[in-house]
Design a binder for these strands. Structure first.
Length: 122
DNA sequence: GTTCTTACA
DNA sequence: TGTAAGCA
């Protein structure tokens, strides 16, 4: 995970900021969370902590509800999107692992010239 | 002052 | 969905 994603996942913003940036009310945000449309981090004192990704998702929920969708439909739609993203992420991890195994293998040029090649030094 | 939960109009 | 009560 790169630094951009890391910062986008950093949950540090209070609900007051989320309210101003999304245009939603605290009531709505808490209602969406209670109905599993979004998962929001909590502080030690049980206060909600929002990340940039949280805000983006809240605005997405806001847009979807304004169109045609009902709460149940939005929940299922977002749930499926989450599954897809997870699968893509897992696939990416598998590709990276596969590449690393190849690069570390004795059949790879990178391995033959690598400082970490166990066959070169001692 | 802000946020949280619960409950009622 | 808004709002008030009582806490943290």
């Amino acid at each position: 995970m790169d630094q951009e994603q890391l910062q986008a996942d950093l949950a540090i913003l209070p609900i007051g900021t989320a309210i101003k940036l999304t245009g939603l009310t605290a009531r709505q945000i808490r209602y969406y969370e209670a109905n599993d449309l979004i998962s929001i981090a909590r502080s030690d004192s049980n206060q909600r902590l929002f990340s940039l990704n949280n805000l983006q998702r809240l605005m997405q929920i806001k847009r979807l509800l304004n169109d045609e969708h009902h709460l149940d439909q939005v929940r299922q739609l977002l749930a499926k999107m989450d599954v897809d993203h997870l699968e893509h992420h897992e696939n990416r991890v598998r590709r990276n692992l596969k590449d690393e195994v190849w690069l570390a293998s004795p059949f790879s040029r990178a391995s033959a010239n690598s400082r970490q090649n166990p066959f070169l030094h001692s």
